[in-house]
Amino acid sequence: MTVYLIAEVKITDEAWIPDYVAHVHEIAARHNGRFLSRSGNVETIEGPPSEGTVISLLEFPSREDVLAFADDPEYAPYGAARRQGSICHYRLIDDTDLAGAIPYLVGPAAT
């Protein structure tokens, strides 16, 4: 089942960014992940504005692939640097439709 990692990052110290940008997409790719967006062009059209400086959207074939990426020892120093120089919210969603009304999405997950 396809899953999406949504990373909302409020940068507090930019020192970590060059190394992170240069290496992390390759590590994600080794775990079958790909960036769909990594943008600072965040526009709020409803609700309170986000505090995020950058929002990234990554697609992975499975939850296990995301966890393997997050737990990859090669990713560890980049993740630690990101956490040191930012406030982050990482969220994982799947491709289900909670209401079960959109035919091209998977119906509600069985409980």
Score class of each variant (00 low, 15 high):
70 A>G: 12
91 R>P: 13
25 H>R: 11
63 R>P: 12
72 D>Y: 02
60 F>M: 01
102 I>Y: 10
101 A>L: 15
102 I>S: 11
3 V>I: 04
91 R>E: 13
69 F>S: 00
93 I>D: 02
14 E>C: 00
60 F>D: 00
66 V>I: 11
76 A>C: 05
13 D>E: 14
46 E>Q: 11
43 E>D: 11
107 G>Y: 06
43 E>L: 09
12 T>A: 11
51 E>Q: 09
95 D>G: 15
77 P>C: 11
47 G>F: 04
70 A>R: 01
45 I>G: 03
67 L>F: 02
16 W>G: 11
26 E>M: 12
101 A>W: 04
49 P>K: 08
70 A>M: 14
91 R>F: 08
28 A>R: 03
109 A>G: 09
75 Y>Q: 01
21 V>I: 03
62 S>E: 08
109 A>D: 08
6 I>A: 10
106 V>C: 06
41 N>D: 14
92 L>W: 00
13 D>H: 01
36 L>M: 08
111 T>I: 12
17 I>H: 07
110 A>N: 14
31 H>D: 01
54 V>Y: 14
93 I>P: 12
11 I>L: 06
56 S>M: 06
93 I>K: 05
108 P>H: 03
60 F>K: 02
101 A>Y: 13
37 S>R: 14
1 M>S: 15
32 N>S: 13
20 Y>R: 05
49 P>A: 09
97 D>W: 07
105 L>G: 01
82 R>L: 13
12 T>K: 13
19 D>L: 08
25 H>F: 08
94 D>N: 15
36 L>F: 10
90 Y>S: 15
75 Y>M: 14
54 V>T: 04
34 R>D: 05
6 I>Y: 06
86 S>T: 05
39 S>L: 05
86 S>D: 11
57 L>G: 08
2 T>Q: 15
47 G>M: 06
37 S>H: 08
6 I>F: 09
20 Y>W: 07
1 M>F: 00
31 H>G: 04
94 D>E: 04
77 P>Q: 00
79 G>D: 03
37 S>D: 12
58 L>K: 02
70 A>D: 04
74 E>M: 05
64 E>D: 15
18 P>K: 07
25 H>M: 15
72 D>L: 09
19 D>Y: 00
3 V>W: 03
65 D>Q: 07
109 A>S: 13
77 P>N: 00
87 I>E: 15
84 Q>C: 08
13 D>W: 07
89 H>V: 06
90 Y>G: 15
4 Y>D: 05
82 R>A: 13
19 D>A: 13
23 H>M: 12
12 T>E: 12
94 D>R: 01
49 P>V: 00
62 S>Y: 04
56 S>W: 03
71 D>G: 13
51 E>Y: 01
13 D>S: 12
13 D>Q: 09
63 R>N: 10
108 P>V: 01
68 A>G: 06
60 F>W: 01
18 P>Y: 02
78 Y>S: 08
13 D>L: 10
23 H>Y: 02
81 A>P: 07
35 F>V: 01
21 V>P: 13
46 E>K: 10
6 I>R: 10
49 P>Y: 04
75 Y>N: 02
7 A>P: 15
55 I>R: 12
36 L>A: 07
